[in-house]
Nucleic acid binder design. Sequence first.
DNA 1: CGAGAGCGTTTGAACGTTAAAATGCCAGTC
DNA 2: GACTGGCATTTTAACGTTCAAACGCTCTCG
Lengths: 336, 336
Amino acid sequence: MATLKQVAAHAEVSVQTVSNALNAPHRLRPDTLQRVTRSIQLLNYRPNRNARSLRTSAVELIGYCVPSWPNGQAHLVMDQFLHSLCASAESSGRHILLFTAPVGVEGMPVYEDLHARRLVDGFVLSQTETHDPRHGWLKEQQVPFVSFGRVWKESTQPGPWVDVDGAAGCAAAVRHLQETGRRRIAFLSWPEASGLAEDRLTGWQRGCQELGLPSGRELAFHCQEDTIDAGARATAELLDADPGIDAIVAISDILALGALRELSRRRLTAGVDVAVTGFDDSPLASVVSPALTSIRQPMDQIATELIDILTATAPAGPTERLLQPELIVRGSSAPG
Amino acid sequence: MATLKQVAAHAEVSVQTVSNALNAPHRLRPDTLQRVTRSIQLLNYRPNRNARSLRTSAVELIGYCVPSWPNGQAHLVMDQFLHSLCASAESSGRHILLFTAPVGVEGMPVYEDLHARRLVDGFVLSQTETHDPRHGWLKEQQVPFVSFGRVWKESTQPGPWVDVDGAAGCAAAVRHLQETGRRRIAFLSWPEASGLAEDRLTGWQRGCQELGLPSGRELAFHCQEDTIDAGARATAELLDADPGIDAIVAISDILALGALRELSRRRLTAGVDVAVTGFDDSPLASVVSPALTSIRQPMDQIATELIDILTATAPAGPTERLLQPELIVRGSSAPG
DNA sequence: CGAGAGCGTTTGAACGTTAAAATGCCAGTC
DNA sequence: GACTGGCATTTTAACGTTCAAACGCTCTCG
């Protein structure tokens, strides 16, 4: 484990010169720079991050609270999100530090502690809830953070955020279904209380209205839980009540899977008799048959924006960014 | 942001005494301790981790490479694993640092760099591959690490590991199926090359043999990919070839889901006509209908053991631990 | 009653780095 | 030839903590 001192001795310069070679190479005369660089390589020197952080008081670590879902349910795309987040962080020389914390106010001491002890520079928040207490608190404490997900039903949300336009995604699904000949499009949703659900429902509604398709309350079903079973039961009820339904936009891949199952039980062919779309383009979507058309959140872009905002030195650019999802068309909505 | 110095001034003791109050309270006279503690609380002092780490050269961070699955497939239980790992790390005052790295030898520089720059004390490896190069390399470099998963087909594996006894899990599934009246139990597997597959296959085989049930090659099907479709096709082939099959042990929940789908297509009732079991007890298992009997890996215990081994100061206890999974019985194997 | 041990506390130094100020050198200017 | 300005490099001092040694006090015991 070489130190600056040893490299300096080897290159016959002062310690500071070696430091400059790494952090401000333009300050060195080309020949000196080359000599120092050679010594660095020869000794396989790596700067000690702790010493650096102590001096600069920046740890280059970003805290992320690993979500724990109350119902034991997994975030099917968390893998992808974490991977993108890590990659983005790394491309700016930072890393992600994971931690656990209780949801709501009880979790705040954990955030405070991590920041006060200088384990992280800031936080990326996800699983944003209505009236999430974290945003206000962090802003007040002047702890840097950025939120993945808007706090819903608030006119203004404290602090910067990045989110995906779920409404636009659902509207795009509706448009795609209309273009492929569908005329009676149902919507499979979560409980109405959820802000996420409201956003996506609105997209379906507006999409239908703009195309002159029906979008009445009887075409929207609110499932109480996000399970395949619930999706299947909802689909059954919808089809029983209105056999004319020829497409179903589901608010999640899981509910869409339920729809697929119910269709298959009824000897209906998904994608032919009734088209189905999901949301999130989880790994499941491409693994079922027919493969599921789904709305993909641009994970890489989300991650890049999050890190961008969090690590911006000067407050450049907007700090509220709504990204567009992408409709991935597969067999469940367009056979062939 | 209070520092030791300020606390010391406030409590009218030396800096070292405050440090001792935190790290070796037994050295202080009770009244001094109390006075210092009061000052610490009053000033809301938190030790600066960087300074501490610089001095002690221990960062209390554990590196974990966030897996990227080549086929874009998600690890359905990664959530749970990460959550358990974080919780275990935290209960020993540590945290998890995430990073990305290419698989195989090309990833080694990343590990080296993280360790050399003192970003982490050691590593938890997962996604262990046959002849995984990381283990040997890390051992040689004397970088602390522990592996989740054995390196297969090696008589001795460099370094400590924790793993789950997949064979025992599958044997337990077979036993359960036999007890509930099943006599012809098929096995749905991955490609034979996989060590994981071999382990679990062996469990099924031995389980059947011990109970006097058939376990010939014709009852084991090796799917080329881990998809619902592949599982369904395999189930179709198995049932076509041998209509007497009354139970299927699948090596993954995904394949089991395929089996369920094929059964339903054939108007057979899972759990009544043919019993089905999966592996991993992923969130999907409880979300399908009938709910899927599955073999759960003890995530909390795995995480605890991993952290235990990695952070043990003295080499206490065995550093190769094989944990027992648990069979979670649900409707797909025991209706009612 | 003086030497030695034990305890609680302080002092001095170091961990490896970087910011800021100081230094020395050289070329250009009047 | 002294004077200025600019550049490359070095010196000094810190960042906040802990280790190791030293200190001074009290107690024990021969």
